[in-house]
């Protein structure tokens, strides 16, 4: 599962992209748990950052498939 980091998630993860090894579908909370295991610094973003699959935002109850590309999009406020 390809994970693409935006804005602060990129800074906290220390990379722009990451291949999350998984061979099964993940729910949103499962996905975050797996990710935070690898990147503990991302924990504060779970509550507020949105996940997007391909070109659309994911709702909280949607499952993510092993071949999906998931983007992590935290809010930013600078102006």
């Amino acid at each position: 599962m390809k994970v693409v980091f935006f804005a602060q998630s990129r800074q906290l993860a220390g990379c722009a992209e990451f291949d999350l090894p998984t061979d099964r579908d993940l729910t949103g909370p499962d996905f975050w748990a797996r990710l935070i295991e690898i990147f503990p610094g991302l924990a504060p973003l779970q509550k507020t950052a949105r996940l997007a699959r391909h070109e659309t935002y994911l709702d909280a109850d949607e499952t993510i498939h092993p071949h999906d590309e998931v983007a992590i999009i935290p809010p930013v406020s600078g102006g």
Partner: peptide, 17 residues
């Protein structure tokens, strides 16, 4: 898009970041 505001202090401003 963002129903929940971020935890205070977790997203830096331009002055900070």
């Amino acid at each position: 898009l963002y129903p929940e505001p971020p935890e205070p202090g977790t997203v830096p401003s331009c002055a900070e970041g």
